[in-house]
Every structure is written in C-alpha cells, then in structure tokens.
Design a protein around this nucleic acid. Structure first.
Length: 567
RNA sequence: GCGCCCGUAGCUCAGCUGGAUAGAGCGCUGCCCUCCGAAGGCAGAGGCCGGGGGUUCGAAUCCCUCCGGGCGCGCCA
C-alpha cells in the first residue's frame, strides 16, 4: 500500500518541474489554452500547504469559468488521476482559486540528504566564468574609517561572498582617493602637528583635519626627521608629508578592514592612475568617441547624451583633472576587464549615479555597471543619539565600534537592513547578551545544535550524517525546517541578483527560529532510535546551513556561547 | 526648483518579478525547565501599509498626484 518503497522520491525542485508540466498539459487539454505566468511559491500561511500556484487565475478568461472551479478541475486532471504525480503530493486542495499542495515528506528529506553530503559547500553553485568587479568602502586617505564605511564594508563583503558562492569570479577593489586637494590639506594638517611638537603655538590650518589621529604620525615624523623641515618652504615638505600621511592612514584603514574580516584584491591608488597614464587613456578614449568638447578652457564630457542633467568637467581650466576624470579612467579599466561592474557608494553620492551609468554607456558597456547606495547610519546608545560631526572632530571610528560591540555584532547589524534603508544602530543593544540581540539569537542556534550533537552518541551521529535515516521526518516543525534548508541556495542567488545582503541576515534569523521551534517540539535525543537518527541528521544539516550563512555574512558560528555572569 | 531614498504594529524593520486573513524581532500579557543549553519555546493583545486617484479578477507592491522626513544637485573629492 505504501507507494514509496522502491522508487527514489524527487527533490522538491524536481517535483515542482513535474507538477508544473502536468498542470500545463492538463490546462491545454481541458481548456485549449496555454497558461501565462504560472508561479509556484511557498504560501505565508502553513495551512495552505508547502506550495501554492496561481494557474487558475491566468486561465479564468480563456476558460470562461471561475478560478476555484478551474483549480478543482486541474487537481483532478493533473494530479489525482495520475498515480505517479499523486505519489509526490500528500494533499492537494483548491482554495480561493489557488491550488495548494503539500509535498511528500520524502521530497523534503532529499534536501537534508544533500545538505549533509555537501556540508560546507551546500548552497554553492558551479563556477560560471563571469567576472565581477565590486568596489565598496572606498574612502579618502585622510583619516580613520568611520561608521558609515563599516556599513559599506559589511554589505560589500557579504555581497562578494554571495557572488562567490553563486559561482561568479569576484574581484574586490578599493580606490584610494589620494590625488586631489585633500591630500594637500592632509599634508598641511600633518605638518602643523609636526611643528606643534616643537612649537605648540604653531597655527593649525583652518580647513585642516582635526582629531587626534594625526598626532602619532606627526610624532613619528618628528622622530625620523627631527627639525629638518621646520624652516623649509612648503614646496619641499608638502609632497613628502602628503605621501607619508597617506601611507600611514591607508595602512591604518587596511588594518581596520582586516580586523573586520574583509579582504580586498586591489587597493587602487588614484594617484597611480594618473602617473601611469591611465587617466589620459580614458579621456583620450572619450575624445575618440567624439564625446568631449572644450569650453572656456575646460574639457567637458557630454554626459547629457546619456541621461545626466548636465555635461561634466573632466579637465579644469587650470589644466588639472577632476575627481570624476580619474573615475572615468578607473571605470574604463574596470569595464574592460570585468563582465559586470558594481559600485557600492555612500549616501552622499546619489548625484553621482547617472554620471557613472552614462560613462558605461559612453564606453559601449551600457547596462554592465550597477551602482548601489548604502544609506546612512545614525548611532545611539540606549536610545541616546551619539553625536557625530566631522567638523567638530567628533568622529566615531569603526575601530571604536569594533572595540565596543565586537566584529560579529557589527557585521550582522550593518548587513541586517536593506541597503536602501537608513540604519539606526543602537550600540548598547548590539552588546547586550540578551534575546533583544539578533546576533546572539542566531549564534545561539548554532551553538545549541553543537551542544546537542556533543551529547549524541558519536557512532550514531556518524550514521545519521550519511543521510540514509531520514524517513521519520514528517512533523510540521521538521518539514518547516527542511523547507528552510531547501530555500538557502535561492536566498544566496537573490542576494546576488538584487544586491540585497540583508536577505541573508534575515534567512539566518529565520532558520535559527525554525530550529528553536523544532527543538521545542521534537526531542532530538529521544528514546526511539530511528527517530533519533533522523533528527540528528536534520540538526546536523541545519548546523551546516547556519554555519554557511554566517560565513557569508562574516559572522562567527560558535560551538558554544560564553555565558557572562548574568544578573 | 530638479533628482534619488524613505514613510508598514508603541519601537526597529521585512514583505522577492502584484496574490489568499499584511509578517518578524523588541516591548507588553499569560503559560512552559524532575527532559538534549530557558541567550529558548508556546499562546495573546496591538496595523484605514502617510493621504487621494488610477491600472486589474486581485495593489503595501505598478502608474499619477499631494503631504511628511533624509540626502544630493561644484572647473570639491
């Protein structure tokens, strides 16, 4: 009587393909119409089954009858009257015009099997040979990294890891804006600090960079050079102090980035783009294309031809290139060497998007460049706003945040919200070891699994992990967890396709919640051996998925949570 | 003035190419540790999805318009 003894059940994905086909066939046979826009999706409400489809709505007009009626008929024709399809489905219902299906648990069990077999690689896709250049986080080399860069770093790094998992060849890059006037400002600020060591009354430039972070660099220079530059002309010390300041600050930024668990394939110096002639080459290319003109001594790019609201200056009338000019060259380089170029910019760059897109079009790579904006971050501590003002020198460095909340919490909080949404970051919340804190919730899920698995018999666990003892898994909370595991690869793809890393953070929370619910309802180390082996397998598979998701997010997956003294 | 983003539960936010009675966390109320980690679970209260039009079988989602908040509109970077 049991229909599933010999044949291996298909995975949910395979089952859906089959069901989709028979439904279409049945629709054609019965109504003589093809069905447009069929979707299969997991309904929000569990009582509507695992999978719902809206075919009947698309057919209503051609069939001249009510969706509910059509759904009913299709269930008969496509499912109930075909034993091989009926075997995949435990329940098929027409409600409100939808066809709601519950797949056989055996289909979902195939997912557990796969997650166990693939382990740390579960969710990964085969290499597809597509090269992606991803730029994010870039900052001026004039100070330490601050909060908003933390968000860009977190989002960018998660995107990069998601792209990698989806089979893309990702190349991460950071551009060091070391070519413009701000490096001279840096040089003057640094020089003033250097002089102040010997002469505290030495004036600090009005537009200089305040803050203490230049003091150690100045001290090092004083240590190295003594008074050698005290009475020299600016033309002598300016380039030196600029370069030294840049080098020291970039090195500091790199340390912070590394501490944050992030790696870059390229730190591109803007100055170097000028020195190696790349900037000239980019401008030259635009000129060849007939997209530049001169006006009042300046060289313009015809940006308006590509949707921008005004033409943009490339070379100023004093002969110096603009910042945009260097970006022209840089993007020309990137567009040539990658199949797709993505820039993740800060909130003050809205006005820059059209200009960059226009460039891609101008160079003949329309549509290959995507620009995303990471919205601003406001900080609070226990509900109290934390003041941040660059002018007043009240900067909150990323390092200070990492000191306060730790890398895991910072990575998670920064990536938790949609990139477009401004982030209100409560530092106190992020450090709380309470259930208010989503990071701990997710990590606790992982640790809790680890703890159960430690309690299990080692030999039984080994057997369970072969994925051959899954048959008993059928409880609602077990199905829910298996469904979630099945979702993971698609979540990764949607993160990559829509540049939305927050979906992964959300997924991590969701699968942790599904596990906690399962844990509450089903005792894993139960008395009955078959059930125990099945649940150990499910717990183990869940642990892999949770660990994989956390790895992409750059958050640790601990084997146990350290309990601090709780009050 | 123009452009971009945001407006969804008391708070912080999800809601994927339009789908069913709009979800989650926190906070609030009440339960659950003789049992694998209670940093957990279960149940409950709480919402004209900023307002108004339109498109359609069906709109938080798409279009128009208005209101409210943030940001950007340099021969700065």
């Amino acid at each position: 009587m049991n229909p599933i003894t010999t044949d291996r059940m298909p995975t949910p994905e395979e089952a859906l393909v089959r069901i989709d086909r028979v439904i279409r066939d049945a629709a054609r046979a019965r109504y003589g119409a093809d069905v447009p826009n069929v979707t299969f999706e997991a309904p929000r409400r569990p009582e509507f089954g695992d999978i719902a489809t809206n075919v009947a709505f698309g057919l209503a007009k051609a069939a001249r009858s009510a969706p509910q009626q059509i759904a009913q008929t299709l269930i008969e024709d496509a499912i109930l009257s075909r034993p091989e399809i009926a075997a995949l489905v435990v329940e098929a219902q027409a409600t409100a015009g939808f066809i709601n299906l519950r797949l056989a648990p055996q289909c979902w069990q195939r997912v557990v099997e796969r997650a166990l077999h693939e382990g740390a690689r579960y969710g990964e896709f085969p290499r597809n040979g597509t090269r992606i250049s991803l730029e994010f986080g870039s900052a001026n080399p004039t100070g330490p990294l601050v909060v908003v860069q933390g968000r860009a770093l977190s989002i960018g790094a998660t995107l990069a890891a998601a792209f990698d998992a989806c089979g893309y060849d990702v190349f991460t890059e950071w551009i060091v804006n070391d070519a413009g006037g701000q490096v001279e400002t840096l040089a003057r600020s640094l020089y003033a600090r250097y002089r102040q060591i010997a002469d505290p009354s030495f004036p600090f430039p009005e537009e200089g960079y305040p803050g203490d972070y230049l003091l150690p660099i100045a001290a090092a220079l004083r240590n190295e050079f003594g008074a050698r530059y005290d009475d020299t002309d600016e033309s002598i010390w300016l380039p030196l102090f600029g370069t030294r300041g840049r080098d020291a600050l970039v090195a500091e930024q790199q340390r912070t980035v590394e501490r944050f668990g992030i790696h870059y394939d390229l730190w591109q110096s803007e100055r170097e783009l000028h020195e190696t002639g790349k900037v000239r080459a980019g401008v030259e290319r635009l000129r060849e294309l007939g997209l530049t003109y001169e006006n009042e001594g300046a060289l313009y790019f015809r940006a308006t031809q590509f949707g921008d609201d005004k033409d943009r200056v490339l070379v100023k009338s004093d002969g110096k290139p603009t910042y945009y000019c260097a970006d022209v060259a840089y993007h020309y380089e990137k567009l040539k060497r990658a199949d797709r170029v993505i820039d993740l910019l800060g909130p003050d760059h809205h006005g820059y998007i059209e200009r960059l897109r226009g460039l891609a079009s101008a160079f003949g790579y329309a549509g290959k460049l995507d620009v995303a904006i990471a919205q601003q971050v406001t900080l609070s501590r226990g509900g109290e706003q934390v003041a941040m003002s660059k002018r007043a020198g009240e900067i909150v460095t990323l390092d200070a945040i990492l000191d306060e909340v730790g890398v895991d919490a910072a990575r998670f909080f920064f990536a938790m919200l949609a990139t477009d949404t401004p982030l209100a970051f409560d530092l106190q919340l992020a450090t709380e070891q309470s259930n208010e804190n989503p990071v701990y919730y997710v990590q606790y899920g992982h640790a809790r699994i680890a703890s159960v698995l430690r309690n299990a018999d080692a030999e039984e666990l080994r057997i369970a992990r072969r994925g051959e003892t899954l048959a008993p898994l059928a409880h609602a909370s077990e199905i829910a967890l298996m469904r979630r595991i099945e979702e993971y690869p698609r979540v990764l793809q949607s993160v990559a396709n829509t540049l939305s890393p927050h979906r992964l953070a959300r997924f991590a929370r969701d699968i942790a919640a599904d596990f906690h619910a399962f844990y509450g309802e089903c005792r894993i180390l139960c008395d009955e051996r078959d059930e125990r082996l099945a649940r150990l397998a499910l717990a183990s598979a869940t642990q892999h998925v949770l660990a994989n998701a956390l790895r992409v997010l750059g958050v640790g997956a601990p084997e146990s949570m350290e309990r601090l003294a709780s009050s």
